[in-house]
Design a protein around this nucleic acid. Sequence first.
DNA 1: TCAAATCTTACCTTTTTAGTAGGATTACCA
DNA 2: TGGTAATCCTACTAAAAAGGTAAGATTTGA
Lengths: 145, 145
Amino acid sequence: MKISTKGRYALRLMLDLAEHNTGEYISLKDISERQNVTVKYLEQIVTSLTRAGFLRSQRGNNGGYRLARHPSEYTIGEILRVMEGNLEPIACLENYPNDCPRAEECVTLPFWIGLSKVINDYVNSYTLQTLLDSASELAGNTYMI
Amino acid sequence: MKISTKGRYALRLMLDLAEHNTGEYISLKDISERQNVTVKYLEQIVTSLTRAGFLRSQRGNNGGYRLARHPSEYTIGEILRVMEGNLEPIACLENYPNDCPRAEECVTLPFWIGLSKVINDYVNSYTLQTLLDSASELAGNTYMI
DNA sequence: TCAAATCTTACCTTTTTAGTAGGATTACCA
DNA sequence: TGGTAATCCTACTAAAAAGGTAAGATTTGA
């Protein structure tokens, strides 16, 4: 019942890009240094995010990545689902409703459906912007003397 | 982000024992036939549940297992946590608060703590009895003509 | 044309998952 | 008192997933 490192790092990468969301392309080298994750591993992660249409990339010298949309237009749920495939707590729910013959009589199925709902509702209720805002509150920068 | 088969089967095993909660000891052979899980695999599962004090066992001929408490006194959360170790969505939270030096400044930590809370609150809000009751409603036995 | 970046494909090691196998021990019961 | 049906205990194993690493091709700005 764990989110993989790819999911966690993807979230940090997206937040990093959101923090530096100037329209410029940010290199993986920069992100790697700030987030302490190797460029090679980040490459795997951005491949998924770019294919999902979440990032724009620029090859060549001074290339890099930037967000395709505004930070408020990404839910944390969709970012995690790109990396994890889905956030269903059991395999039965991955392509529900499916052909399981026990579904009608399955006592535990409604319970698992409910668990899936609280998880997905929660992660869908946060956006990159939400987390950025709570971050600046955390740092208290706004009110520092 | 998946509950293992051990967690899922443990829940079905506990529900099976709750349905046949007459005070008699129920053999794994019976449970195996009803739940379609091998006796050998069930043995592994009951070992954990017995050591956790959730089951009483009786060895020898006509032996088996029964619940140690009333079905209303088991939350689904505690059953799953025995089998899974814990239900934390990321490793950082397994022994939180811990020594992570980034905790203070970690933007994502409060988000993960919130996710852990909705998951654990949900699974703690159901008991074996709750599921049994919804099962009999599902079957509609009470009101059948 | 060089350097710095992305892109692509392949590979590898470790851990976890999902079991299976064999036999020892216990206790009811005829 | 001996057979049988159950739990108990220790080990093993195959497959899949997790968590990366490696090498090099391609692109592009300066």
